[in-house]
Write a protein that binds this DNA or RNA. Structure first.
Ligand SMILES: [Zn+2]
Ligand SMILES: [Zn+2]
Ligand SMILES: [Zn+2]
Ligand SMILES: [Zn+2]
Lengths: 144, 144
DNA sequence: GTTGACCCTGTAGCGGCTACAGGGTGTGTC
DNA sequence: GACACACCCTGTAGCCGCTACAGGGTCAAC
């Protein structure tokens, strides 16, 4: 399998595959006589694994850790579970933060009803006014 | 005002201030006899503006566009409003995607009840198994 | 024999910082 | 005056996860 074929099969860009090899996430394949990379089924499996992980927004460093368990099936999987828990916590924290952000943007958006001169725009005023710890639409109940 | 004082007043890192100057977001201040940057109140205001925008996760390029309206109060503010709308749409799209991600991670997490050998771990199985378009916990009803 | 699709390596860029290295300056204490 | 220490300066490189070249080689079809 040439790199373009693997890319198509795995729904991944060619350059991404080379990148994964470079950072040591995907094992370097054999080479054909012309120097082209020649992939086997194992590479497709591994790439699919990586793709599933990435779809779950798991960092590549963590994907590498998960792959170590794939390579060593006799190990205990406690770390795997912990990793998913951590990932879930990260996603939930980001969700909280984004929900607050949404509210803040809605509040900000309501400041300018009808477009007019910038001097009168409530949005710009809201962003301009509070220099110090004054109340503002963006710094308040926002987590962190 | 020296850079460290400005940093403290605006709750921003010193290096971030220099970075903003380098990319042309914050005007270069006057210099004291010793070459130190000497900031005026205007810089604190501008930095506060940037900070409010960043708290709303507005990209620096968009912050620059907003600052142009601050500098030209006679302009029409329609673009400002559109920018906030776009930002809001972006946040909502990310929210949707993250909510799905949360569900997927929860589903994945439930695959391994009790930590055991990696060979039996349902999480690893779920990530390993589907190579092609098979159903998997991470690729399905997920947006994009 | 020439077009075009593919492959190779290596390097640089994105955003938004962050972290040095290697130096200069200003203030306080002994 | 000598030293420590905090702060300032410039410039460069690193983070993440790709993405996009530049400048070349290879292969099959027409
Ligand atoms: Zn407006
Ligand atoms: Zn604010
Ligand atoms: Zn498990
Ligand atoms: Zn999947």
């Amino acid at each position: 399998m040439k790199i373009g074929e693997l890319a198509k099969a795995a729904h991944v860009e060619v350059e991404t595959i080379r990148y994964y090899e470079r950072i040591g996430l995907l094992p370097a394949p054999a080479r054909s006589h012309n120097g082209y990379r020649a992939y086997a089924g194992m590479h497709l499996e591994r790439l699919a694994f990586i793709r599933h992980c990435r779809a779950l927004d798991i960092a590549l460093a963590d994907v590498a850790r998960l792959l170590r368990f794939v390579d060593d099936p006799s190990a205990e999987c406690g770390e795997v579970d912990a990793l998913i828990d951590t990932q879930l916590a990260r996603v939930r924290a980001r969700l909280d933060s984004l929900r607050t952000l949404e509210d803040q943007l809605v509040a900000l958006r309501s400041q300018c009803g009808a477009p007019d001169r910038a001097a009168q725009c409530g949005i710009l005023h809201e962003l301009e006014a509070p220099t110090l710890g004054d109340a503002c639409v963006c710094h308040g109940e926002r987590p962190q």
